[in-house]
Write a protein that binds this DNA or RNA. Structure first.
Length: 612
DNA sequence: CTGGGGATGGGGCCC
DNA sequence: TGGGCCCCATCCCCA
């Protein structure tokens, strides 16, 4: 098949040349381009994702490669491309992508004359000679000096205000992409980094994204929209049916699972798989050009899948078919989330714009008028990798620059009462500076960021350790930590399994190292520092959040070698394998009943112990 | 219809 | 950061 751009070029060539007019279809190239652009906006057959700032754009490799040598080199080996945000902003890239697909410079959002300086910079960077020439002409005509370097008028990055409007640009242009509910758009996100399993799942992601974008759908376990996409028990077999090996660690699934021998040039691989894409490590590709945060922001009602059927992007419950069981389960679970976390405020705070204090007129939950777009405003501005959720990045936290974590409070778990370290969510001071939202209860000190509070807490622990090592009693009061004075004798039981000098000041638990203690102490916080970029659910641990993201994205790295069923966790696969092996290692001591899973034994034991 | 078991998904937490 | 394990919730099947 002649690819789009090739066909276009052929057409151009043919138009010029030897063929007679009767051999030429004048509208062919136009129609072709129109189709391609339409497909792009729908995400249909898009096989590359371009990440700019926090926005992601889906496109076709062929088209990009045909437009730019630079892209050509990039898309050859990567399905996920990250552009230098100093050279091109998401807003500018939006224009450029439009240009590539239409041959025209479309007005921005709001409609305005393109900034040819920034465009020129970006065009030069992206090696789009035609666009660059166009920009030069325009600039020359306007009598403006131009250069392709950084700084001044040539800056690729528009002013922050402009960058902030990216979401609205995207939203306006592709409303369906950002209008939906959780899951329905399952942004193709890579929350993982550096060769993690998730890296391999972009294929699945793309596929899922494509579900939502007009491709034939094979959601979860249900409708076989794609030929050969079979229903499979717990679902999730589509990847393998599509020839996507999403499993790095588990044994390859026999049917239709290509080995790693595929080269990047392999069309099959080009289609969806992200294997081997180094850039895929940090970027959560989303729909066509929806921004990560935007999705999150738009998905501030994450549990609500109602109405998703109206949306062509619906991934889980596509129209015209009974929702697969899994979808229902998902739906039910999401609602359960909603029940559990009524205060699921959007975590996507504009951290660098909004004051850490209250937004005027903000409601109690912090849902008010806040721009649900932390990444766009903050992370993106900071050039934060896409995969980074919209909470302060490590560096920022370490520098104490951020970490306000000032958005959502799940509050449903985490031990509000008696928590020693509290994120103060009420009683904000309007002052933009000096509101120390993180309070160490033992010593009543406030800190502007969780990281600083962390560091402070660590000093408590280290102090304690030091004092223990010196054999001295912990001196209360001197450091204002008198509340901790009482419990300094390490529980001997805990020490039995090795020294565990780090004791939680909120509970009796002890740990071997400060890091684990810190991790544990976060469970006592009201604030959960790690929000899901898709649904906004907050987590105390990054790992839990990334694992959670997998569930959004249908990332199932672990495939059963027997039946091909896939799982999000290795442990699940291990459990599952007992189904095939018949192994029932868990035995009820009361009735002798055997179980394949411990949890089912526990459930069974309850049956014994319950009054009924 | 109900209860029990099998199986799966997700979150919390520790290592 | 990921693995492993625990717990809870849920669905499906079957007696």
């Amino acid at each position: 098949m002649v690819s789009g751009p090739l066909a276009l070029r052929w057409c151009v060539w043919a138009g010029r040349g030897d063929m007679g007019p009767d051999m030429e279809l004048p509208s062919h190239s136009k129609q072709l381009l129109l189709q391609l652009n339409q497909q792009r906006t729908q995400g249909f057959l898009c096989d590359v994702i371009v990440m700019v700032e926090n926005a992601v754009f889906r496109a076709h490799k062929n088209v990009l490669a045909a437009s730019s040598v630079y892209f050509k080199s990039l898309v050859l080996h990567d399905n996920l491309i990250s552009l230098d945000t100093d050279m091109v902003s998401s807003a500018v890239f939006q224009q450029i992508l439009d240009f590539i697909y239409t041959g025209r410079l479309l007005p921005g959002e709001p409609p305005a004359e393109p900034n040819f300086s920034t465009l020129l910079t970006a065009a030069s960077y992206l090696q789009l000679p035609e666009l660059a020439a166009l920009c030069r002409r325009k600039l020359k005509r306007a009598g403006k000096p131009f250069g392709s370097g950084r700084g001044g008028a040539g800056l690729g990055r528009p002013p922050r205000s402009q960058r902030l409007s990216t979401a609205s640009v995207i939203q306006t242009r592709y409303p369906g992409l950002v209008d939906g509910r959780k899951g329905a758009h399952a942004p193709q996100e890579l929350s993982q980094a550096k060769g993690s399993d998730d890296e391999l799942f972009l294929g699945g992601l793309s596929q899922e994204g494509a579900h939502g974008l007009g491709r034939p759908v094979c959601p979860g376990s249900g409708e076989a929209g794609l030929s050969g996409c079979s229903t499979n028990g717990g679902g999730g077999s589509c990847e393998q049916e599509l020839g996507l090996d999403l499993s790095k660690k588990s044994p390859p699934v026999p049917p239709a699972t290509p080995g790693p021998s595929l080269t990047p040039d392999d069309p099959a691989q080009l289609s969806d798989s992200q294997e081997g894409s180094p850039l895929s490590t940090s970027a959560p590709p989303v729909a066509n050009s929806a921004s990560y945060s935007e999705l999150g922001g738009a998905l501030s009602e994450p549990m609500d899948l109602e109405g998703a059927e109206d949306n062509p992007l619906c991934l889980l419950e596509g129209p015209g078919g009974p929702p697969p069981r899994k979808s229902l389960r998902h739906s039910a679970r999401k609602k359960e989330w909603a029940k559990k976390e009524p205060v699921a405020a959007s975590p996507f705070e504009r951290r660098d714009v909004a004051p850490k204090g209250p937004c005027p007129g903000e409601d109690a939950e912090g849902l008010g008028d806040r721009v649900p777009n932390g990444v766009l405003a903050g992370s993106a501005a900071a050039g934060r990798p896409f995969g980074e959720p919209p909470y302060p990045c490590k560096e920022e936290e370490e520098n104490g620059k951020d970490g306000s974590e000032d958005s959502a409070q799940s509050g449903s778990e985490g031990g509000a009462a008696g928590a020693p370290y509290v994120y103060r969510q009420e009683g904000y001071e309007p002052a933009p500076y000096g509101d120390n939202l993180y309070v160490c209860i033992p010593c009543a000190k406030g800190f502007p960021s969780s990281e600083q509070l962390n560091a402070h807490v660590e000093t408590h622990a280290e102090e304690e350790l030091l004092l223990r090592e010196e054999g001295g009693a912990y001196e209360a009061g001197s450091a204002g930590a008198d509340e901790e004075a009482e419990d300094l004798s390490a529980p001997s039981a805990a020490l039995a399994a090795g020294p565990r000098p780090f004791k939680c000041s909120a509970c009796e638990k002890t740990y071997k190292d400060a890091a684990t203690l810190r991790q544990h102490e976060k469970t006592h916080w009201l604030a959960r520092p790690f929000p899901c970029g898709i649904c906004g659910k907050m987590f105390t641990q990054r790992g839990t959040m990334t694992r959670h993201m997998r569930s959004h994205l249908g990332l199932k790295p672990f495939a059963c070698g027997e039946c091909g069923m896939r799982f999000t966790r290795q442990y699940r696969l291990t459990e599952h394998m007992r189904v095939h092996s018949g192994e029932k290692p868990y035995e009820c001591q009361l009735c002798g009943g055997k179980f394949t899973q411990q949890r089912n034994l526990i459930s069974h034991l309850r049956m014994h112990t319950s009054p009924s």
